[in-house]
Structure formats: structure tokens, C-alpha cells
């Protein structure tokens, strides 16, 4: 910059305004170019991530082919790899978590976006729910092992004894298993679902609500028949994004699900997920196994990307004017 002090004094009538100097313009160009370069770099970075993971996985992909997705054994000694139980476990645990966390999340969103409470208490409750997401997942894992599992074991075993003929309760809960994992997972996705659903409910114009009240609807008739249908797209995308989060959650599951390679419907049996498989096997993997794990990572990446992109698309469609019903 060419000495702004002298420039300012030279300016007409002591004015603090002056046109940019050549140096200013150059600095401007450089800075703008720099920001543009970093925006491009974001894209390159994502491309590089996909290329790098995909490239490392490629030999294993060629060798194992599509059979990797349908195989059910994982035995590094025999060079036999299959991740069907893990794919099943990932989807099953996430769906269970979504059905619990989704229900609670939407209920909380309704409770916090309608005028049930004075503002001050509402802010505190809202912050509390958001803080649920702040607890690191490894701490939830620890809590799950030593507090949650002992707590739900009697209930689980009662269900097994009395309703054991249902496939869901066909085993007893001895330690880690699908149900405690899904329960902790639901706690972790609940804040996501609640926050996005709240945004969707909050975006409904006040007159929609007033019109329903004016017709004589009770509070819950308004909520169930007017507000929820109006916000349905936002709530749906909240559920999709919550599902995406559940699919990729690693630590709590690695600690609670029992890491057992089996295909089961039982809620109390140990199982495994893709993310937990990676977390457990990576640290001690041989070079050959790393390629196979990368293949599993590619599968996980594909599933979560599809779910997340779907969720983001639904949000941006419903945010568009005229996109949501009003």
C-alpha cells in the first residue's frame, strides 16, 4: 500500500475518501484470487479423498468383486472376506435408532416450537437437548457399557423369557448387543432430528396456525392435521439426515454392539456395523487386509453420501419459495 498517510493529507479538503491506488487494486486481486483458490481447493480435496480411498481399495475390489457384499465370513487367515452381516447391522441399528430417536426428536421439536412453555424455560430446554450432541461418542460408549447395559439387562431378559418366540427377542442379553447400541445411537441422533424439525415447524407462517385455531381446532388438532403436514418435508429431511448420522457413527457402536459377525434379527444378540468393523480391524491390519478394509470404507462412504445428498436435496427443495405447502 502506497503510504496511506500522505495520500490522506493530499486528499481534497482533508477528506478521508480516496480512490484505491494501484497497489490497493493489486492486493485486492490477489486476495480475491486467494479466496477463489480455496473454494476450488474444497472441491479438489473431496475429489482427492474419494480418489485416494478408492485407489487404495481398487486392488481388493478387483479381487473380491461383488461377492464381497454378499459374503458372510470374515477370515483374514483364509483370505475370505464378506460384509453382508456388517451392512445388515449398519442398516438395522440405524433404523432402530431412527425409530426411537425420530419419535422423540419430533415430539421435542413440537414441544419446543409451540407455545407450551414460557420462553425462558424453553431456551434452557433447547440448550439441554443440543448439549446431548456435544457429549463425545466415546463417552456415550463408556456410559453405555457400565450404566446402560446393566440397567436394561433385566428388562431384556424378561422379554426374552416371556416373548422369546418372537425373532426380535430370540436371544438373551449377556453383554453388548444390538439393542443397547441402537438406544445410545438414538440419543445421539435425537438432537439432529429435533433441531432440523424445529426449523421446519418454525418456518410455518403464523397465519396458518391462526387460521386453524380460528376454525375451532384444538391445539393438537392444529398440530397433527395442519402443522405436521405443512412441515412434513422438513421433518422428513430431518429424519433422513439423522439416519445418515446413525449410519456413520462409530465409537459408541464399536464399544456397545459386540462386534460379532452374524446376521440376526434379535435385538439382544451381538452384531457388527461397517464403521465398527473399520475401527476394530484397521489398527492391526496387514497390508492385504488394509485394501479390503478400504473397500468396506468405500461401501460405507457410498451409503452415507447417498443418504446425506438425498437429505440435503429435500431440504433445499422445501426451502425454495413455493416448495413447501402453505
Amino acid at each position: 500500500m502506497a503510504s496511506p498517510e500522505t495520500d490522506r493529507k493530499a486528499g481534497a479538503g482533508g477528506s478521508i475518501c480516496r480512490p484505491p491506488t494501484a497497489a490497493d487494486r493489486l492486493a485486492d486481486r490477489v486476495f480475491r484470487g486467494l479466496t477463489c483458490a480455496f473454494a476450488w481447493l474444497t472441491l479438489l480435496l473431496i475429489g482427492y479423498i474419494v480418489w485416494r480411498i478408492g485407489g487404495t481399495a481398487l486392488p481388493a475390489m478387483k479381487r473380491l468383486g461383488i461377492g464381497f457384499l454378499t459374503g458372510t465370513t470374515w477370515d483374514p487367515n483364509q483370505q475370505k472376506y464378506g460384509i453382508l452381516p456388517e451392512i445388515w447391522g449398519t442398516l438395522y441399528s440405524s433404523l432402530l435408532a431412527l425409530s426411537i430417536g425420530g419419535f422423540f426428536g419430533v415430539a421435542i421439536a413440537i414441544f419446543l416450537s409451540e407455545d407450551f412453555l414460557p420462553d425462558r424455560i424453553r431456551v434452557v430446554l433447547k440448550a439441554t437437548v443440543e448439549l446431548l450432541a456435544a457429549i463425545p461418542s466415546v463417552v456415550y460408549g463408556l456410559w453405555g457399557i457400565y450404566i446402560l447395559i446393566p440397567m436394561i439387562r433385566p428388562l431384556a431378559n424378561w422379554l426374552h423369557v416371556h416373548l422369546g418366540w418372537l425373532p426380535f427377542f430370540s436371544t438373551s442379553l449377556t453383554g453388548p448387543g444390538m439393542f443397547p447400541a441402537a438406544l445410545v445411537l438414538s440419543i445421539m441422533i435425537l438432537p439432529t432430528v429435533a433441531a432440523i424439525s424445529q426449523d421446519a415447524l418454525g418456518a410455518i407462517p403464523a397465519r396458518t396456525r391462526e387460521a386453524a385455531f380460528g376454525l375451532g381446532a384444538t391445539r393438537w388438532e392444529t398440530i397433527l392435521r395442519v402443522l405436521l403436514p405443512t412441515a412434513s418435508r422438513g421433518i422428513f429431511s430431518a429424519l433422513v439426515l439423522g439416519f445418515g448420522r446413525a449410519l456413520g457413527e462409530t465409537m459408541a457402536l464399536a464399544m456397545l454392539i459386540g462386534n460379532s459377525n452374524r446376521l440376526t434379527l434379535s435385538l439382544f444378540s451381538p452384531a457388527d456395523t461397517l464403521a465398527a468393523l473399520l475401527a476394530l480391524n484397521f489398527p492391526e491390519a496387514s497390508n492385504l487386509e488394509v485394501g479390503v478394509l478400504m473397500y468396506a470404507a468405500v461401501i460405507l462412504l457410498t451409503i452415507t453420501l447417498l443418504v446425506n445428498i438425498a437429505g440435503e436435496m429435500i431440504i433445499s427443495f422445501s426451502a425454495r419459495p413455493g416448495g413447501g405447502r402453505s
Binding site: R52, T250, L278, N308, E312
Partner: peptide, 21 residues
């Protein structure tokens, strides 16, 4: 859009990438 999608990428995949790279 990619930044928004990145927020949803499982954290373990960041580890997988850093391992590879």
C-alpha cells in the same frame, strides 16, 4: 453443497483417508 455433504460424512472415513494419504 459439498461442504454440507461433508458434515454428514462419518468421522471414521476421515481417519481412513488420513491413513491412506
Amino acid at each position: 453443497f459439498s461442504a454440507k455433504t461433508m458434515t454428514g460424512i462419518p468421522s471414521i472415513l476421515a481417519g481412513v483417508f488420513a491413513y491412506a494419504a
